[in-house]
């Protein structure tokens, strides 16, 4: 397995905070593997994920994607080309249908299948969205269905890195299981690197690598 993402002496603190949330974080993430970042609320796991997703700049240290620093790649380019994000609140375009959500994401990220509506429909079908819901407004779908549309969105884009912030936080047990299976499939079948932030031990256990964040330090558990 090749190293896709690497953090070097990464540190982050809030402007008004005296102590850093975390510091000297040195981790590597490989393609074809799923990672779970677990920890108590307020430990900084979501902030860590936002740095990996290119949504914010680290206060110290650096992140390398394919051996190139994010600073050099540029955060906007990185987000468009290399990383795909799934949020707890789904964050779909609420004025669009599932198909248009996928089409829009493919257009913005300049994905290989951009403009291919049939491909978008196949992706939706693959993750279990009924055909009748393809062109309905996403707000008419259930929470589980919306999260699956969000996952299909990441599958449509060509980004090799998928990061997810509490993707099962609003889902029931059955939907949680289905969503985790989708992430595993993305990692193992599509060869992408999947990093999930979760506070649910059951979800973490299903990932290939578990990274525990406690007392501003990361501990890696490889299964």
């Amino acid at each position: 397995m090749t190293t896709m993402l690497e953090t070097k002496d990464l540190a982050y603190w809030y402007e008004n905070g005296s102590r850093p949330l975390f510091k000297d974080v040195n981790l590597t993430f490989e393609a074809g593997k799923s990672y779970a970042i677990v920890g108590q609320s307020g430990t900084g796991k979501t902030t860590f994920l936002s740095l990996l997703a290119g949504l914010d700049h680290p206060k110290a240290g650096e992140i390398l994607y394919d051996n190139e620093t994010l600073k050099k790649i540029g955060l906007t380019n990185y987000r468009r080309r290399d990383v795909s994000i799934v949020f707890q609140a789904y964050n779909l375009f609420n004025y669009m249908s599932p198909v248009n959500n996928l089409m829009t994401a493919m257009a913005i990220t300049n994905a290989e299948h951009r403009g291919d509506q049939e491909y978008a429909k196949r992706m939706l079908e693959q993750i279990g969205i009924p055909k009748g819901d393809f062109n309905r407004n996403v707000t008419h779908l259930s929470g589980g269905q919306q999260q699956r549309v969000a996952i299909a969105r990441t599958m449509c884009c060509d980004a090799a890195l998928v990061v997810a912030d509490e993707p099962t936080g609003n889902l029931d047990e059955q939907n949680t299981k289905a969503v985790i299976n989708q992430f595993q499939s993305i990692a193992h079948d599509q060869g992408k690197c999947v990093i999930i932030v979760t506070h649910e031990p059951e979800v973490a256990k299903q990932c290939d690598v578990e990274i525990q964040l406690a007392d501003r330090e990361f501990q890696t558990v490889v299964r």
Partner: peptide, 12 residues
């Protein structure tokens, strides 16, 4: 939120 999602997708 919509703007945020667009930015997260890498839209300029």
């Amino acid at each position: 939120y919509e703007i945020g999602v667009l930015l997260s997708l890498g839209e300029s």
